[in-house]
Design a protein around this nucleic acid. Structure first.
Length: 880
RNA sequence: GGGCGAAUAGCUCAGUUGGUAGAGCACCUGCUUUACACGCAGGGGGCCACAGGUUCGAGUCCUGUUUCGCCCACCA
């Protein structure tokens, strides 16, 4: 034994070394493989935010991408994986402002310029952190092509797009009601608002008529907004209120006079059927107000406090404080008719979780309808395919109901809006470069202070990273990209926006397939979160178990699109598997002494022919599953093949022929097949477990620089004869092992067995493989006969694949135990036979089922009848 | 209000076009078999949520119900 190969795989010793090997040799670039004729396969990374470090969701997302890119690279594609990071405008803002707060300062105190300096410093520090973590995971990105959403090229793309859309009228500016986050101090898009159901109250308020006695009662969940009411609306067909329309009400607490209007928006069934209208603080009321000339009156400011317009008693109060005081006042005035509990949804900022305030402000928007049209078409027509397919509907449903996209943000970190306002006249100039002066009057211009929604630049990522708007070599060669891999949580934020942007600006789809995966949850299925402190740091897993184990654990056995639970027990399984492979290769190393590559012939040995054939079967399955994007099934197939077939059967079968004292020709043939099989297995496993497989492959005789660039195993032929023979041997072996175990034959006891072959084929196969079976079942001898005049009485008996097996045990046998065991087996066979016969007696079955199914069932009946007969005879003989 | 997903062994999950219910972990019994105890061999364990329907045949297809989860939505 060679002492230098440790028994236990240590990933730490391997991973760093081989990553450096790949990186130093530039193997991640598609140029590492020669030939220009190769088809491109491109993935552009979903750029991680520079705000943080790699989390378990990134680990899953990037593992999937790396599996795909490594597999395609081995298949001979010009495989390019473009890496990069996202400036994450609002998220980074939050982080930096937190940091500034800790320092006792703020962005306002710092000013724009110095704030941006801090932001770039942040980017330099944290941008590289996550890149290094991706490397730890084994990602084979082409780092020479790394991009950043705020780098020169991406920024040029953003400007180009903005200016173009503006001149086409697809970007416009205007006063609309928008979602204002009082905490982040910026407007956010509809998508960035998360609705949460809140238990609250529905307050019934009485508004007296100004022009006569009586009152109308309105219901509201936000009483503080009544200070901004400029009307009350009822349904035009509501008979209760027919006479009220056109009259005037006196708004309590303010004494303002407001009209009653009729609008079909109002649901007569809800509340009292009369709605207070607050155009400045409710999106519906905003629209309703426009229809009826009810001017907005802003009573809540951008700081979440009541404005002067709310009146002296309330101005300056926080909106919630105001609610309390106002309710007291209304109750005192006797106009709070009743309060009833209600659950309703309240919008919250997706970044800071603050309740969003609908406010009117002047913002920039993208007109979505014209852009959505083609974005719907390419998906409907299958040019872009969602995997799994069910996400197609999710996408289409959103795109078909899309609203205009608010793209301006009152932030500093990001792409500044290229709009310049003349200080002298009203003219607005939108241009990529700052104009020297107003093109109209020559006056000085000031640039819009706002930046763009961070997703505006992400939307261009698949082409901006490849050089667009320049007509670059990369853009021509690698665009459109092949596969986009991302979670279902950003289908709208990102995927949808890339699709319409690409169609608009590049005239083509950005990617062919969209592979959607689920979220990684904790072992109980809960979302990982800071507050629950249930997060799993992928770096911890890598440090303790290795990146290969993490990768394998994350993909194995998972269904595409479904969430998965992270369980440490499964990590152990992954670790064990890595160790199993390590030791299989270690076994090969220990048995390859004297092996000379070359001069291989077609294998003659049954075990060799069998494993080569099985390898072809798993090769075909893994390839097919990868093509379907079912990575979990591909990994599972490899797991069971490697463990059960390769290790537990093939290696055990090969051992005698590989022994140092084995005959030379047989030994070198066995060595050749061992190398061939292991080589192919490592290739198939490489996309999943790149480090381990590279390390092991480098220890094998091979040609080529790296397993990374080795060709994916080509299709071969199955040897069904060998597979059939091995199936017989395996079944007989298992049955004999079972006999030993059930009858408590001590491991040290060298028992001999008799096999009665039902036909010449079985007799031949068992005779040829008697040596293998005795070895695998720890027998001293196996006598294969075609008939046996007298069955041994002192023996355990079984029937496997039609072969009668006897394990003579002389004095050792426990008669009662054997009788019970046989009886149980007989029962089972009888039960199954009864079912089969019932089916075959059913005219419906024999008449309608496909012939091959019926034929199979008939064969099964023969087998079971034979088995039952033999077992029954045995039982009779033993006197049971 | 609309849509989607899940329900299969104690746990986490597979189950391809309907044709004898599987894996890993856990559990039980053996085993210092010269690659691996992170291992080897053997074993037990399932009214496939419920009720109907289609079919010769349903975990799989259809309808309905229940429970859990998610997404969308302008429910004052």
């Amino acid at each position: 034994m060679t002492p230098e190969i440790p028994k236990v795989y240590d990933p730490q010793a391997v991973e760093e070394r081989w990553y450096r090997f790949w990186e130093e040799r530039g193997l991640f670039a598609p140029e590492a493989q020669d030939g220009n004729g190769r088809t491109a396969y491109t993935i552009v990374i979903p750029p991680p935010n520079i705000t943080g470090s790699l989390h378990i969701g990134h680990a899953l997302d990037n593992t999937i991408q790396d599996i795909l890119i490594r597999w395609r690279r081995m298949q001979g594609y010009a495989a390019l994986w473009v890496p990069g990071t996202d400036h994450a405008s609002i998220a980074t803002h939050t982080k930096i402002e937190e940091m500034l707060a800790e320092e006792g300062t703020s962005r306002w105190e710092l000013g724009r310029e110095r704030f941006l300096e801090r932001a770039w410093a942040w980017k330099d520090k944290y941008g590289s952190t996550i890149i290094n973590q991706l490397k730890r995971l084994g990602c084979s990105c082409d780092w020479s092509r790394e991009r950043f959403t705020l780098d020169e090229g991406c920024s040029a793309a953003v400007l180009d797009v903005f200016v173009r859309l503006y001149h086409e009228g697809l970007i416009y500016r205007g006063h609309y009601i928008t979602n204002w986050c009082p905490e982040c101090q910026t407007v956010i898009s509809d998508l960035e608002v998360e609705h949460q159901d809140i238990d609250s109250n529905l307050y019934y308020l009485q508004y007296p008529f100004a022009d006569g006695p009586g009152h109308m009662t309105v219901a509201t969940t936000r009483p503080e907004t009544m200070l901004g009411d400029t009307g009350v609306a009822v349904h035009p067909d509501d008979r209760r209120y027919k006479a009220c329309v056109g009259r005037t009400l006196l708004l309590p607490a303010t004494g303002r006079r407001i009209p009653v209007v009729a609008d079909t928006y109002v649901d007569p069934e809800f509340g009292t059927g009369a709605v207070k209208v607050t155009p400045a603080h409710d999106p519906n009321d905003f629209e309703l107000g426009r229809r009826h000339d009810l001017a907005p009156l802003q009573v809540i400011g951008k700081d979440g406090r009541m404005t002067e317009a709310a009146g002296p008693r309330y101005a300056g109060l926080d909106r919630l404080e105001c609610r309390v005081r106002l309710l007291e006042d209304l109750r005192a005035a006797g106009v709070l008719a009743k309060t009833e509990p209600i659950s309703h949804s309240v919008g919250h900022c997706y970044r800071c979780d603050t309740a969003v305030e609908p406010l009117i402000s002047e913002q920039w928007f993208v007109k979505m309808r014209p852009l959505a049209e083609s974005a719907i078409r390419v998906v409907k027509e299958g040019e872009i395919r969602f995997v799994p397919d069910r996400f197609t509907k999710v996408y289409l449903n959103w795109m078909e109901n899309v609203h205009d996209w608010c793209i301006s943000r009152q932030l500093w970190w990001g792409h500044r809006i290229p709009a310049y306002y003349c200080q002298e006249c009203d003219r607005v100039t939108v241009a990529a470069a700052r104009p020297d002066g107003c093109p109209g009057c020559g006056g000085a211009v000031a640039q819009d202070p706002d930046v763009l929604d961070t997703w505006f630049s992400s939307a261009l990522w698949p082409f901006s990273t490849l050089g667009w708007p320049g007509d670059t070599a990369d853009y021509r060669r690698y665009y459109p990209t092949s596969t986009l891999v991302t979670g279902y949580d950003i289908i709208f934020f990102w995927v949808a926006r890339m699709i319409f942007s690409a169609l608009k600006h590049t005239g083509t789809i950005p990617f062919r397939d969209v592979l959607i995966h689920g979220m990684v949850r904790d072992s109980q299925g809960r979302k990982m979160s800071k507050s629950l402190n249930n997060g799993v740091d992928p770096l911890d897993v890598i440090r303790e178990y290795g990146a290969d184990t993490l990768r394998f654990t994350l993909v194995t056995g998972n269904t595409p699109g479904n969430d998965l639970r992270f369980q440490w027990e499964r990590v152990q399984t992954g670790r064990n598997f890595a160790n199993k492979l390590w030791n299989a290769a270690r076994f090969a190393q220990l048995n390859l002494a004297g092996y000379e590559p070359g001069g291989e012939r077609a294998p003659a040995d049954l075990a060799d022919r069998w494993i080569i054939s099985r390898l072809e079967a798993v090769r075909a399955e893994v390839t097919a599953k990868l093509e379907q994007y079912d990575l979990g099934a591909a990994a599972s197939a490899l797991y069971s093949f490697a463990w059960d077939e390769f290790c537990d059967w093939y290696i055990e079968l090969a051992k005698p022929r590989l022994a140092a004292d084995a005959p030379a020709p047989a030994r070198s043939e066995a060595q050749a097949v061992l190398v061939q099989a292991l080589d192919a297995l490592l290739k198939l496993l490489h996309p999943f477990m790149p480090f381990l497989t590279e390390a092991l492959w480098q220890g094998l005789p091979h040609t080529g620089e790296s397993l990374m660039l080795a060709p994916w195993p080509p299709a071969g032929n199955r040897d069904l004869a060998a597979e059939g023979d091995m199936a017989l041997i395996m079944e007989v072996t298992r049955s004999l092992r079972n006999l030993r175990a059930e009858l408590n034959v001590p491991a040290g006891k060298q028992a001999s067995a008799i096999a009665v072959a039902p036909g010449p084929r079985e007799a031949r196969v068992l005779r040829e493989s008697a040596g293998r079976i005795t070895r695998l079942a720890a027998l001293s001898q196996l006598d294969v006969v075609e008939s046996l005049p007298v069955r041994p009485a002192q023996a355990g008996a079984a029937v496997a694949a039609g072969v009668e097996l006897f394990l003579p045990l002389r004095d050792l046998i426990d008669f009662d135990k054997e009788l019970a065991r046989l009886a149980k087996e007989l029962d089972q066979a009888s039960l199954e036979l009864a079912k089969v016969e019932e089916r075959l007696q059913n005219a419906g079955f024999t008449g309608r089922a496909p012939v091959e199914v019926v034929e199979k069932e008939r064969q099964r009946r023969t087998e079971l009848a034979d088995k039952r007969e033999k077992l029954a005879a045995r039982l009779t003989m033993l006197g049971g």
